[in-house]
Design a protein around this nucleic acid. Structure first.
Ligand code: ZN
Ligand code: ZN
Ligand code: ZN
Ligand code: ZN
Lengths: 151, 151
DNA sequence: AGTTTGCCTGTTAAAATTTAACACTTGCTA
DNA sequence: TAGCAAGTGTTAAATTTTAACAGGCAAACT
């Protein structure tokens, strides 16, 4: 994501969303698109309230339902440590486990797929005879851009 | 934690809490102890409301302030994916990064310290020039006991 | 074409969760 | 013993999330 051509980010995310919905037999309705486009204005996490403020229809149930749908469909991530949401940049792979790098300064979020780390995490879990189904990895810290700026 | 002598868990956690407070120059007051002991009744996560219900003084600010303090002091973990809290079993090491194994069946939480996985996560972050300060690792799944029970 | 069906929306509230503000107390210490 | 910082009690309020239910809309059947 770092130094992205964000117009490209956004259009390809939209295309992907349409594909995913099609595949799920669900509709990419106005409300869902509205939430999705608002989230994809940037790579920053937004709270439900943030999003709601920018919606055409600002009623809570509308917003929460769309968020719920997008999350279940793997198109967005719920950033639990911020209680906020961000568009997923790996939506093509519905089974990916993302490591979210959350900059506490500029609030941008990058998402990487740390295959080796994940396999270590799963190994560690299995050592305790624990069978994981859902994994959250969130790191708060300072991103490259902000690091350079403050030095 | 699995198959623990929980009386032991609890007393050693209390002793540790007293030590940590002492070291921080803070007081392990009645309210803080009340929250802490309620959490340590088990290894299950409890929401703020759950805890509040069992407090001597059931007023929200009392509960939230104690939780905030205990979290900042590293004595409990905020389980962000459940928006709930659980006692930390590695409080002796204030810099540990715990991997929470959260059983969606019995709701017990185990916490392990996956050193290798963590170093891989940090390595992956640094590859993006990201400087992490706080790391959350939470896995939802089925624990050993529940796995055995359902098979 | 008309009708059923299931998904999705609109709307009205209400419940649940978290925080603000401020006066007061308590234990330390200068 | 007065002053200070940490911690509490109390009253509300703000924020976040959910329930409930009537209505609309698009694909699918007859
Ligand atoms: Zn971008
Ligand atoms: Zn993702
Ligand atoms: Zn811990
Ligand atoms: Zn279990």
């Amino acid at each position: 994501m770092t130094n992205c051509d964000h117009t490209l980010c956004k259009t390809s995310a939209l295309k992907e969303a349409e594909r995913v919905c099609e595949q799920l037999g669900a509709r990419f309705t106005d409300q869902r698109r509205n939430v999705f486009e608002i989230l994809w204005q940037s790579h920053k996490a937004m709270t439900a309230a943030d999003i709601m403020n920018e919606m055409t229809n600002k009623q809570p149930p509308i917003t929460y339902r769309a968020l719920e749908f997008l999350k279940k469909s793997g198109l967005i991530h719920h950033v639990t440590s911020l209680n906020a949401y961000v568009g997923c940049i790996h939506a093509k792979d519905p089974n990916h486990i993302g490591q979210l790098l959350i900059c506490t300064n500029c609030h941008n979020i990058d998402e990487i797929e740390p295959k080796k780390a994940v396999s270590e995490l799963i190994k560690a879990a299995k050592n305790q005879d624990f069978t994981p189904s859902l994994t959250h990895i969130e790191m708060l810290g300072i991103c490259k851009t902000c690091n350079n700026a403050t030095s």
